[in-house]
Design a protein around this nucleic acid. Structure first.
Lengths: 204, 204
DNA sequence: ATATAGTTTAACCATATGGTTAACAAAAGT
DNA sequence: ACTTTTGTTAACCATATGGTTAAACTATAT
């Protein structure tokens, strides 16, 4: 085994362990010892590879965001017709979040505690850009395909309908008095229902 | 000044300080010393009145939830026609959240970290009940006023569209590249636009 | 074989943190 | 008046926590 692969193994093992712990407990709730245990290594190694809790956290956060951002981009910068786009996005996005249930919550939560952090993200290459989506919506309004609506509001609605049910899962499970299996089925149904809901809301 | 009023003053001063700190920083991020400073009292007094951080936190959490719950109830247990209900709820709810911007996030976040906590809430007197809303939706479908939709899905959509934009404010501000004032205006506009959106989505 | 660079660990350290104690002050009850 | 109860504080305490250090171990290069 070469030094390089050893490095990569340990380093990525740490990052994966840190992802699990940070996304579950947040920056404040996570403990360096717990991350070390999760990665089956000595606590000092965390500092050897990432210097500090803050830097390890930032590595995790960026990695998480760069997983989420392309999902958003797929709705924004893509040439398919608006309605198709909404259907694809809803379907894909819910599949994605089912696989990474803690991710959106993690990002939004930490961004709330650290709003200035968003400035770092804006600089990133792959940060989503809404220009294309905006003009597409405006075109469709002009063509009389959909009702007048501000593109920003429509985008907020699309994201809200797709993300919120996962972020608020414990609350909604309680409110609707359903068990985990039923709730998962509800989310599965939403893959098509949310798109229908949105399209009905805007089509003329 | 009687002992009682002294008690109440200090005790509620502590609770208010704790609300501010806990809702801003969460259970893990909050420090007892910081709450004491915020309340302008000695740290020991926190323990004198609330025994432990956990109990103080629970007092804050219950108080927060009992502020949010009636808002939900207003959509669920009210005799007005469905469309009026949606309009009123959206309008009132957004006004409410503008006044308490950290509240929904706080509740949902802590519920995510502690999902079993929801069981305590279910026992509460004022816990929202969706029966009435469900049958109202089903009636309107039967009467041919609205398209077929599962009441649970509609309820999720209503809550998502109203809550999410506040929970994800930092992310959305970055994504849409708007400043605080513009964002507040967007939220203001949503008081009517969200209701229109929902009603368009379901009406026949 | 041996030096060298990189990797991993156990033992520490300084500080922060939730919580306790004991003394004191202020009211209220008698 | 004085005793008891309630409220408040400063000083402490045990432990948890992020971080450091120095030594040991491993693999690679010479």
């Amino acid at each position: 085994m070469t030094t390089d692969t050893k490095n990569l193994n340990t380093e990525s093992e740490i990052l994966n362990a840190a992802k699990r712990i940070f996304q579950l407990k947040g920056m404040d709730g996570a403990r360096m010892q717990e991350i070390a245990d999760e990665a089956n290594i000595n606590k000092s190694l965390l500092h050897y590879y990432y210097r500090s809790k803050q830097l390890l956290f930032e590595a995790v956060f960026k990695s998480a965001f760069s997983l989420l951002a392309p999902q958003l981009n797929s709705v924004l910068n893509d040439d398919s017709p608006l309605f198709d786009k909404i259907r694809n996005f809803t379907n894909n996005y819910i599949s994605f979040v089912v696989k990474h249930p803690y991710l959106p919550n993690f990002i939004i939560q930490e961004l709330n505690k650290n709003p200035e952090f968003v400035k770092n993200l804006l600089a990133e290459r792959h940060f989503p850009n809404i220009e294309k989506f905006s003009s597409q919506v405006d075109e469709q309004i002009a063509e009389g395909v959909i009702k007048p609506i501000k593109p920003t509001q429509l985008l907020i609605n699309i994201i809200a309908l797709n993300l919120f049910p996962f972020m608020a899962a414990p609350l909604l499970k309680g409110l609707l008095k359903v068990d985990d299996t039923t709730y998962r089925q509800l989310m599965e149904d939403r893959k098509t229902e949310v798109a229908d809901f949105i399209i009905n809301a805007i089509k003329l």
